[in-house]
């Protein structure tokens, strides 16, 4: 029971991170029908940006308060990562809209290869570790065979995720951008005829997706403390799995999918074998795509003949 509770807490923490990344996949897929293969690498890049900013703030500028540094890193990381996404969309995807169907996907794969190797070349092959922070731990159960703990980090991750998701939900539901976004999702050409700036809307979609991935990146580096240039691929695939599981195009689906994947992964590692935890995630992806391609909340995809 204690182990179960502990894994539940760990799983929800990990799942929040996956959910944040998954939103980027699901929004981009919803609006231009493309699997943004480079999104996982954008997440990895943001974790590196966060790592360097932390070091710069604490070592070069001598900021003593970790909490203060965290807030700055969070917002600066979101801004800088958004800039990357903006440029990537401009260079790698914009001109390919309306080209043959696989062109954007191949371009995205190229972008993914480019980003991970760029970081490798610029920052070197080794794992980069940050000194641990926010180390306080709450003990939830006491005296049993096993103490269930909830760390400040975990509270932080879940609450930051919740607050940002609420803000993001507000943007998509209530603002004119959100309306334009949903209009483009339904029918881009029609939206353009009605005066929606489609280019700008798509650009903003990429930027928002990347900003949320950057939040995930900052939280990831705080939680795990280690990042490597190859670390974009697997979390990216898991987040994509989350998006597919939740139903591509559905925002609540992406978050729920992220939580599910996080839970499956932690429970799998705890009860079965941590060697095969990635196999479990990949298998969920395959099984979902084959048997339930519209996911939990997605619209069924009726083949147009």
């Amino acid at each position: 029971m204690e182990i179960f509770l502990q894994q539940l807490i760990n799983g929800v923490t990990l799942g929040s991170i996956y959910g944040l990344i998954a939103i980027g996949y699901t929004m981009v897929f919803g609006i231009i029908g493309m699997v943004n293969f480079a999104h996982g690498d954008v997440f990895m890049l943001s974790a590196f940006i966060a790592l360097i900013l932390f070091l710069a703030l604490t070592q070069l500028l001598g900021v003593a308060s970790v909490a203060f540094a965290f807030v700055i890193v969070l917002f600066a990381g979101m801004a800088l990562t958004s800039l990357w996404a903006f440029v990537i969309e401009r260079i790698a995807y914009r001109r390919l809209r309306g080209s043959f169907r696989l062109a954007p996907l191949i371009s995205a794969i190229g972008m993914s290869i480019f980003l991970s190797n760029l970081v490798y070349v610029l920052q070197g092959p080794r794992n980069k570790a940050l000194p641990p922070m926010f180390n306080d731990v709450l003990r939830l159960t006491d005296g049993g065979a096993y103490d269930v703990t909830l760390s400040v980090k975990q509270i932080m991750i879940v609450s930051v995720t919740a607050v940002l998701l609420a803000g993001f939900w507000f943007i998509v539901q209530k603002t004119s951008f959100g309306r334009a976004q949903r209009a483009c999702e339904q029918d881009g050409r029609m939206a353009a005829l009605l005066g929606v700036d489609v280019d700008r809307t798509i650009s903003l979609t990429f930027v928002i997706g990347a900003a949320l991935a950057a939040v995930a990146g900052v939280l990831y580096i705080v939680y795990y403390g280690v990042i490597n240039s190859g670390d974009g691929f697997v979390p990216g695939v898991k987040a994509f799995t989350a998006a597919v599981l939740g139903g591509v195009g559905s925002l609540p689906g992406a978050v729920l999918g992220g939580l599910l994947i996080g839970l499956v992964e932690t429970f799998w590692a705890a009860y079965f074998s941590s060697d095969y935890k990635d196999v479990a995630a990949f298998s969920i992806l395959v099984v979902t795509l084959i048997f339930m391609p519209s996911g939990l909340f997605g619209r069924p995809d009726v083949e147009k003949v």
Partner: peptide, 15 residues
């Protein structure tokens, strides 16, 4: 660098 160039080339070629 090879993979870096391959990445750029794939993006460039598609464009």
């Amino acid at each position: 660098y090879r993979m870096l160039i391959v990445g750029i080339a794939m993006v460039g070629m598609m464009n």
